[in-house]
Simulated scan of single mutants.
Amino acid sequence: MTPVQRRRLVWVLLVLLASGLATTLVAFALQRNIAYLYTPSEVLRGEHGTQSNFRLGGMVVKGSFQRAEGSLDAHFVVTDGDATLPVSTSRILPDMFREDSAVVALGRLQDGVFVADEVLAKHDENYIPKEVADKMGKAHTKHDVPMPAVETR
């Protein structure tokens, strides 16, 4: 092997090693930042596993929203029609947050209460995010409970 060929081989090996290292780092970063969506029933069954952060999706139970005067601390209950899970947050809620409407919250489970770092809500009470509708639909077909009309966009 000539010195030029040897130099090229070293460069190719270094590029392959660097590419492999970069791919591995990106994969680890993405894996840590992925947040799966679960319904209250799935969370209570323990399907969320040991994930520290995940998304909770469902409908806000009518009459469950509570907020202390002069505070951002809010408490409400989310349901998928089969189970309910209390949610608390100290963040600003979106303007479109309403009771009896779809919500997706990103956070963690702590002592049986979902502590939300971020709450997402949609503007129309007839709209349920497709992921939530699919999961709630599966839960209701298992128990033969009719699902409300769902509009997907």
Rank of each mutant, 00 (worst) to 15 (best):
L25D: 02
L14G: 02
G107M: 04
R98Q: 13
N53D: 12
A18L: 14
V115N: 02
L109N: 05
K142Y: 02
A29L: 09
G81M: 03
L120W: 09
D82C: 00
D134S: 11
T89H: 03
S64D: 10
V119A: 06
L56T: 04
Q5I: 07
D82K: 04
R7V: 10
A22P: 01
A27L: 13
S71C: 08
E125G: 01
G57C: 10
D73V: 15
T89D: 02
F65E: 07
M96D: 11
D144A: 11
H123W: 07
V132H: 02
A74I: 09
P129R: 06
E125N: 10
D117K: 06
V132E: 01
V104I: 15
W11N: 10
R67Q: 15
E99Q: 10
T84Y: 00
Q5S: 11
A83F: 00
M136R: 02
P86R: 02
Y38R: 10
W11D: 13
T152E: 12
S41P: 00
G46V: 09
G81V: 00
E42W: 02
D73H: 15
L30Q: 14
D134L: 14
K138G: 07
I34P: 02
L16C: 13
S41N: 04
Q51G: 08
L9R: 14
D134C: 03
D80P: 02
T2F: 08
V87Y: 00
V104Q: 06
T141D: 12
L17Y: 03
G63H: 06
A121W: 08
S64Q: 07
V103A: 05
Q110L: 12
K138W: 02
Y127H: 09
R6P: 00
M1W: 00
L30A: 07
R108I: 06
N33R: 14
A133I: 03
T84S: 06
T89E: 06
T152H: 04
V150H: 04
F97Q: 12
E118H: 08
F28V: 12
P94H: 03
S19M: 05
A133W: 01
H123K: 15
A18M: 14
L120C: 08
L30T: 13
K122A: 08
G63P: 05
L85P: 11
S101K: 03
V145N: 07
V61A: 05
R91H: 09
D111W: 01
M59A: 01
L44A: 13
V77E: 02
S88W: 05
L14I: 08
S52R: 13
R98H: 14
A133F: 00
R98L: 09
L30H: 10
N53M: 13
R8A: 08
D134P: 01
E125P: 11
A121F: 03
V12S: 09
S64P: 14
S19V: 08
L109K: 10
F65H: 11
V78L: 02
V15K: 08
L16M: 13
T89G: 05
